[in-house]
Design a protein around this nucleic acid. Structure first.
Lengths: 201, 201
DNA sequence: TCAAAAGTGTTACTCATACACCCATGT
DNA sequence: ACATGGGTGTATGAGTAACACTTTTGA
């Protein structure tokens, strides 16, 4: 008759640190794919909405209460889980580097370890989505409240994998009033301290 | 334990005719929602891939072999089907008006009949997706091989719900080499016949 | 005084927008 | 000849892209 399938919620949790796009992974401790890394997802429980499941997961993994996420794709290959048929709903979730306490399970998205299931492909699709749908709302999630303009430029560059002219970038951000200069400055840097900016409202 | 759910594949099949964005629907003949209209979807069978199911459905409904489609969203509300929990994978499918033989089940997307389930919402999301992701590949699906430039403009206008300046529109299409003029012309029209264009490669 | 990153202006080019009249055909 | 939609050019402003040197701080 008709197929019944389990429903997984798989977040690709991104952050930007040290000029790299990072992804938060979890190491499996049982078969299949024992010891390999996987996305920190979960299966839906009866009557449960994906957003609820995801909020719980994100809270566990990252600690922060409110984390931005959005659905980007669904993975349906009948053989993607060797046990039962499982449909995975793929989400991207974005956290700023200030939230990262323990760097241990954060990996460079461009240099991933051995992955379980089709999770490498899911991450690759997620990166593509991130790049294609980049906007201020997205980048904002990666930044702390106050930041130097050059860090913002770096965020764009890391996601889009291209470089901007520093003068043009600054002009665009300030003339369009996307950011506001504050009277604060960087501290304890061994060079000219940058002015700190914040996002406009 | 964990939820098992049925998986539905629901295509929103769009076409453009008479200056309207049309959607192909199917009238139900049993409860729940007897006599209401629904998307011409189907449930996945064991081991079946959504793309395969969709190809079958589209072939049945429209006749043409190769139809462009793409996944746009997933609908997961636990109560969206009053019988069993069913996850619906939403697709948009695009056909050009030449393929429409029987107009009977084609409805103006902006004036739908009473719908079953959450299908009105699915169509509304599909329209939003179409509008936001409009590009030449998309519009191409709606057009016959040869067409007057003004018909192409109309297609953009119907999808985006805005109007273009005719001179600017023509300049953009031709200068960017998105279309090529052929030596053919409209026939049997009671006004100056339009030159027919085709998409570039 | 040196190293390191922050910050700053001008010019050229491309693209989007606004706007009104003549043209080719069928009836 | 007239009604109907087809077809054309120019000017203005906005946004994007290219390009190199001076400034401020800590060490």
């Amino acid at each position: 008759m008709y197929e019944e399938a389990k429903i997984a919620v798989d977040p690709v949790i991104f952050s930007i640190k040290d000029g790299e796009l990072k992804v938060l992974l979890h190491q499996r401790e049982k078969d299949p794919f024992d010891k390999r890394y996987e996305l920190p997802g979960g299966l839906l429980r009866p009557e449960e909405k994906p957003e609820k499941r995801l909020n719980q997961k994100l809270k566990n993994m990252v600690g922060k209460q409110e984390i931005y996420f959005t659905q980007f794709n669904v993975f349906t290959d009948p053989d993607r889980d060797p046990r039962d048929r499982t449909i995975s709903i793929g989400y991207i979730a974005l956290v700023n580097k200030e939230e990262i306490e323990n760097e241990e399970n954060w990996f460079d998205a461009r240099d991933l370890p051995e992955m379980a299931f089709d999770h490498r492909e899911i991450i690759s699709e997620a990166q593509k989505y991130l790049k294609e749908n980049l906007n201020t709302v997205i980048v904002k999630q990666f930044m702390p409240k106050l930041f130097p303009l050059n860090d913002l430029q770096e965020a764009y560059e890391v996601i889009e994998q291209k470089s901007y002219d520093n003068r043009n970038f600054r002009r665009k951000m300030t003339e369009k009033n996307l950011v506001d200069k504050t009277d604060k400055k960087e501290r304890n840097v061994s060079h000219r301290p940058a002015a700190l900016y914040k996002f406009n409202e």
